[in-house]
Amino acid sequence: MAASTDTNNRSLLRTARGKLALTAGPSTIWLGLLLLAPLTFMVTVSFMNINEAYNIVWQPSLDNYGQLTGPGLPWESSFWNTAFMESLLLSYVIAIVTTVMCFSLAFPLAYLLARKGGRVFKIVIFLVLLPFFTMYLVRAYSWLLMFGPNGVLNATLLKLGMISEPLAVFNFGVPAIIVGLTHAYFPYMLLSLYASLDGIDFSLVEAARDLGASRPAVLKDVILPLALPGIISGSLFVFVPSLGAFITPRFLGQGKVLMIGQLIEERINSLYAIGYGSAGSMFIVLTIVVAFALAFRYVDVDELGGV
């Protein structure tokens, strides 16, 4: 705005429009070419058939989607009765349970961090962030060592004589995947919750208590509403990547569990079935769009700033 006063200087840098072009332009072009265009292309491909030579047949059709869902309409059970839809539902269940787990684990810690400060805070946050920034792959791998009939968990309990046979819960499978995902995405939840709890004026809490509100009532009427943006953004940032998880179910499912990301990956890597893969990805994309649209009803885009 101030720049527009220098009317005598016509250099690009001096005009507001020029400055905007210089600052926002490059990233717009870059993301346009490497994010928007690929996603648009993917949407397009999802409506095209692919021939034997892996070329696209430019003729719109719903065949790819027809392969994913069963015959019939969404309210008929045959519609849901395909591997893809079952895998999708399983992925939803896993992602939702993971989100709930993350929330229940992160909330007490976030609350504590918000009320504490200084040195303790810095150390704890470092201890939380370090595993978080350690390679995702490494964290998934570390759980690979823990689970299994002879994994560290079962072996230790056996050694201590607490159990006589390996426990099934510590075998690979859905529980192991949920633990792995919770471990992987827990810090997203923690940091989001912390960010919103940190803004809370805790004298409000004291005031409510002094006025005689019970602890659960304070939690419900004061803390939770204030923490809502954090809860929502934290849940999004746990739910979305959990839904599309690939490595964790791959390592911790011992081949018996098929989440949506694995299914799409296998189709792409073994058959280069890009039509099928694109159409499958649309279900993830659509879920994200819906989830964010819902979230925006409660929180502002700025508060979803992110992780």
Partner: peptide, 12 residues
């Protein structure tokens, strides 16, 4: 394709 579809159904 049909093999893979069946395989996915087994897995899921």
């Amino acid at each position: 394709d049909a093999w893979l579809t069946a395989w996915e159904e087994i897995k899921s």
